[in-house]
């Protein structure tokens, strides 16, 4: 009897859903179609639009394009990895001219959708698709290792204990780039310093980030850099509970100094916004080269340290010198 009651309810639920389709169905067709002469679609990964990280930065770039170049812009968040393909497809069906997939997680979805919609242009951030870039796709990558190298220089020259720390999100090549560049920077600037590397195996567990930071600081480190998304929030919570001017944190992706204004040495800023704006602009003007990888590094201001920083002037001078050496090619920064 109990079961029957339940089943009855469900049949009813399904019926209503179907009925409502009949009534509310076709009304909204074409409503999503793009207006204006050039239109852009942006699909975030599961981090969402305002993740204070690369999704947000990417969106800032296309929003700037909306204001400066008068292009039509629409953004869509993905809730699950499985949503990437349908979300990209929606924009393609809307005949949007340029469709962005933000993050390396799109490395299978972009080629799959690009294959079906040959007339649309696609762009992916943070992946070169293993070198196999379709003819209607542009791959945008960043030399995260170069920016991290400068963060390493700043850390190596600021540390008093000659111990610095690195907190990674998940042990994957995307994050190893940050670790490799940072470690190289520390060693070059201060051969006596050691780098302790830890991974949270998460991008969201701030409690874990705080615990790892605690262990690193307790173990003697006085500057800690992170490339760990939400886990990194815990680093700032921990450093804030310690003596200012003695313990430092270095942020990543965007200027993170608001999380701990007195304790943030600097942030390794990744200008995804510069990249999304530039590429959108080129696409609109018809000068975009497709089927290639566009790599943003120190030279293009694609990566670098935040303007807002507590790095001392003497250290800053050396950071600048290293920066010039990298740009001139005198130093090659490892990425693995």
């Amino acid at each position: 009897m109990q079961m029957k009651r339940w089943l009855g309810s469900l049949v009813a639920v399904s019926l209503v859903a179907t009925l409502a389709v009949g009534c509310g169905g076709n009304k909204d067709k074409d409503k999503g179609t793009a207006k204006g002469d050039f239109s852009v679609g942006l699909v975030t990964d599961t981090g969402g639009l305002n993740d204070e990280s690369f999704n947000q930065s990417a969106n800032m770039g296309v929003q700037k394009a909306k204001n400066d170049l008068k292009v039509d812009v629409k953004a869509q968040e993905s809730k699950k990895d499985e949503d990437y393909v349908p979300n990209l497809t929606r924009f393609a069906k809307d005949k949007r001219n340029l469709i962005w997939g933000i993050g390396f997680k799109f490395d299978k979805a972009i080629p799959e959708v690009a294959e079906k919609f040959k007339d649309s242009k696609f762009a992916i951030v943070d992946s070169n698709l293993g070198g196999k870039i379709p003819s209607n796709v542009v791959a945008v990558t960043f030399k995260d290792e170069e920016g991290s190298f400068l963060a390493g220089v700043a850390a190596g020259l600021t540390t008093k204990s000659n111990q610095v720390g690195f907190i990674g999100g998940m042990s994957s090549p995307t994050i190893k780039k940050f670790e490799a560049g940072f470690t190289a920077g520390v060693k070059q600037a201060n051969p006596k310093a050691t780098v302790k590397v830890v991974y949270a195996e998460s991008f969201s567990d701030a409690t874990k980030g705080r615990s790892l930071a605690k262990s690193l600081y307790d173990g003697g480190a006085d500057v800690v850099y992170h490339a760990a998304g939400g886990v990194g929030k815990g680093l700032f919570d921990e450093v804030k509970s310690r003596q200012a001017g003695k313990y430092w944190a270095i942020g990543v992706d965007m200027d993170q100094s608001r999380l701990a204004p007195e304790h943030t040495l600097t942030s390794m800023v990744k200008r995804v916004d510069v990249a999304t704006f530039e590429i959108t602009k080129q696409a609109k003007e018809g000068t975009l080269k497709l089927g290639t990888e566009v790599n943003f590094g120190l030279k293009d201001d694609g990566v670098g340290l935040s303007k807002n920083s507590k790095i001392s002037p003497e250290v800053m001078k050396q950071v600048e010198e290293f920066k010039q050496k990298i740009i001139k090619g005198e130093i090659t920064v490892p990425s693995k």
């Binding site: 969402g48 969201s204 567990d205 701030a206 409690t207 705080r210 939400g230 929030k233 815990g234 700032f236 919570d237 804030k240 999380l259």
Partner: peptide, 16 residues
């Protein structure tokens, strides 16, 4: 404890 003591914000992944 998670949003105002250990951490200092709330997001979708705070409790996780």
């Amino acid at each position: 404890a998670l949003s105002t003591s250990i951490g200092s914000e709330f997001s979708a992944t705070t409790v996780a």
